[in-house]
Design a binder for these strands. Structure first.
Length: 271
DNA sequence: CAACCGACCTGTTCGC
DNA sequence: TGCGAACAGGTCGGTT
């Protein structure tokens, strides 16, 4: 569920309650949620560590701790993080809890249990193979144009490939392609320079706007750390709108499957 | 190199 | 009302 804008919003929301605090102890009822090291080592290594800074890379949250440790979390489809008073009742989907030194808890709730937690000294061990940050200055029309020359892959699955660009997910890929008026089924190497330009601009625009709106909350999915919803879902042009008229040209939005993911686009104005 | 599919999990919605 | 199928913001690994 959470893509780059959701993760960015969560990072921003966790800084105030976490930075400067330290971990007294931690507990889990689903040790598989901890990818590395093993749960026993994880628990003893994180005990006493203080939060120095919180940042994001792609869809990963990076908690820099003292003494050279880094807590890294990926929320996958249904992961949620919150900081609440220790006495707050936890529902059955809260699987890992960090007790803080101020009688609050950092809690990781995850209905589908796909999310993962890492504790590493070198973040590159987890993040090393991620592609460009789409909001960085390195993500330019020229870069996109050059990088797509030899790639015969279908465009949308390429945008979802985190080793290519890190942070775009299923919603914002569809929204950005619609904004750029590019058909998601196109081959990457068929992009013209002009299209590479409109696509980089559209990706930036959509991600920036989604961050402004504090992410997209659909159903019981993504929530900000304080439990409230984002509002980007009110601005979707195509995602989840199969059968409805396109807001740009009134064509009927189509829903197809690409690379195993549901894909929404307007066949009348995306070429 | 690329496309496809099952795994990993649980909950909700849809169609009959 | 009931019940199975389909579907869900993500990623990895194995197989064609």
């Amino acid at each position: 569920m959470p893509e780059l804008p959701e993760v960015e919003t969560i990072v921003r929301g966790l800084r105030q309650p976490l930075v400067g605090r330290s971990v007294i102890d931690s507990f889990t009822d689903w040790p598989r949620q901890i990818d590395r090291p093993t749960w026993d080592k994880f628990r003893s290594r994180i005990k006493g560590r203080a939060f120095r800074s919180i940042t994001r890379r792609g869809k990963y949250l990076i908690f820099e701790l003292d003494q050279g440790e880094n807590l890294i979390i990926h929320l996958k489809m249904t992961g949620q993080l919150s900081v609440v008073p220790r006495e707050t009742v936890a529902d059955k989907h809260v699987h890992t809890i960090f007790n803080l030194d101020n009688n609050f808890d950092l809690r990781f709730r995850d209905v589908r249990k796909f999310g993962r937690i890492y504790l590493v000294r070198d973040p590159a061990e987890v993040l090393g193979s991620l592609g460009l940050e789409p909001l960085s200055t390195a993500f330019t029309p020229t870069w996109l144009y050059e990088e797509t020359r030899q790639r015969k892959r279908v465009l949308k699955p390429l945008l979802l490939d985190q080793h290519f660009v890190a942070g775009i997910g299923n919603i914002y890929a569809d929204e950005a392609l619609h904004r750029a008026q590019i058909n998601p089924q196109r081959k990457a190497n068929s992009l013209s320079k002009k299209e590479a330009q409109s696509l980089t601009e559209a990706i930036r625009y959509i991600l920036d706007m989604a961050i402004d709106q504090e992410g997209s909350s659909i159903d019981a999915g993504y929530r900000k750390p304080d439990g409230s919803s984002g509002s980007m879902q009110a601005h979707f042009s195509v995602y989840g709108r199969g059968g409805e008229p396109c807001p740009r040209c009134s064509g009927i939005i189509e829903r197809i499957v690409l690379g195993g993911r549901s894909t929404h686009f307007c066949p009348q104005c995306q070429f």
